[in-house]
Every structure is written in structure tokens, then in C-alpha cells.
């Protein structure tokens, strides 16, 4: 009986009075929670803002379908980042195959006059290293800095846990302040 009812309800329910489904509510909340981090991450892959926002919509619509089908809901943050990462790479390929770096990594030497010379130099040194990292290493760092745990990073980039920790350790030791 209830099975029939649940089949019928969507047909009968007038659209105008439809309240957001619990899943839609949940996805809206997740959108609010993750939007900034995912958006920053997608931008860091070198995509323009408008494309990044488009991708975000796609990601969360997919999440909505995913959750509507009662699919597993563990590691949702990893799921969101993984779908975002994949869509972003696909979009980037169609936009600009050669240039993978975001603008912020390709800047001219600093011009901020109020900054101390030493601080500016250090920042330039860091930027150079970050720009020279293999993209996978840079992605690991950026995801970790957005708060993702290793298993979430592993899910996003389709790596093993061991690779994530080894990559992070290697990248961090490259960033290390030069010995005086």
C-alpha cells in the first residue's frame, strides 16, 4: 500500500505547494558548507569564475541525484571534491589545454611597497616552488589546506592513502624554509 502511495504522490502533489525534499534540504546545507572550499579549489585548477560556478551547480545536482538514490553517504566531502575535480579537469581541457596554472601562480614580481623585502622574497620563493610542483602534489596541498583528511584527498584524486601521505610529506619538505 505504501509503495503504491509513494509512487503516486509525486504525480498528485501540486508543484506549487511542494516543500523541498529532505534530500534537497540536505544538499542545500552541504552546498552552503562546501561551496567556498570547492570553488577555491576549482579556481586553483586554473578555471575562470563563471565556469567554476557552473561546475559547482553540476556537482551538487549530481550529489542530489546520488543521495536521492540512497547511495552510500560516507565520505561525502571527498565525493563532492572528486566530482568537482573531474568536471573541472574536463572543462579545463576544452578551454585551454596548455595552461594549467591559475593566474595567481603566474604573477609578476611583487610590487607591494609596504611589504618588507624579506617577506616579499620569501613569498616569491614559495610561489615559484608551488608553481613548479607536479599538479598532483599541488592538488594534495591545496585540498589538505581546505581541511580535507587523507582519505578524502585520496578519494578526490583517486590515489591510495599511502600516496597521499608520501606526496604531502615530499611537497612540504620542498617548501621548507631555506637553511641560512
Amino acid at each position: 500500500m505504501s509503495a503504491i502511495r509513494s509512487q503516486l504522490v509525486p504525480w498528485v502533489w501540486p508543484q506549487t505547494t511542494a516543500k523541498p525534499s529532505p534530500v534537497a534540504e540536505e544538499v542545500s546545507q552541504l552546498f552552503e558548507e562546501f561551496r567556498g572550499a570547492v570553488l577555491r579549489y576549482i579556481l586553483s585548477l586554473g578555471l575562470p569564475m563563471q565556469d567554476a560556478e557552473d561546475i559547482l551547480q553540476e556537482v551538487f545536482l549530481s550529489l542530489f541525484h546520488h543521495l536521492s538514490k540512497d547511495k552510500p553517504r560516507d565520505n561525502l566531502r571527498g565525493w563532492v571534491f572528486r566530482v568537482g575535480h573531474n568536471l573541472a579537469l574536463k572543462r579545463r581541457q576544452s578551454l585551454k589545454p596548455a595552461d594549467a596554472l591559475p593566474e595567481s601562480l603566474l604573477m609578476d614580481p611583487g610590487m607591494n611597497p609596504e611589504e618588507e623585502v624579506a617577506a616579499r622574497r620569501e613569498r616569491e620563493r614559495m610561489l615559484k616552488i608551488v608553481a613548479a610542483l607536479p599538479e598532483r602534489d599541488r592538488c594534495c596541498l591545496l585540498l589538505r589546506a581546505e581541511g580535507l583528511r587523507y582519505r578524502e584527498i585520496a578519494a578526490t584524486l583517486n590515489l591510495s592513502l599511502g600516496t597521499v601521505s608520501a606526496t604531502l610529506a615530499r611537497a612540504l619538505s620542498r617548501l621548507q624554509v631555506e637553511p641560512r
Binding site: 511542494a18 523541498p20 534530500v23 544538499v27 561551496r35 551547480q57 545536482l61 595567481s104
Partner: peptide, 23 residues
């Protein structure tokens, strides 16, 4: 350096909500 200022999420959030309600 790397993080840019993000636009408000209000518009995108309501677009998403509307799109979900259609499904």
C-alpha cells in the same frame, strides 16, 4: 596570494534549490 575574493553564494544557492525542486 592564491585565494581570490569569492562572489556571494546567494544566487547560486537559490538556483540550485530551484533546480533540485524540479527533479
Amino acid at each position: 596570494v592564491l585565494d581570490v575574493e569569492l562572489p556571494s553564494g546567494a544566487g547560486p544557492a537559490s538556483l540550485l534549490r530551484a533546480r533540485m525542486s524540479m527533479y
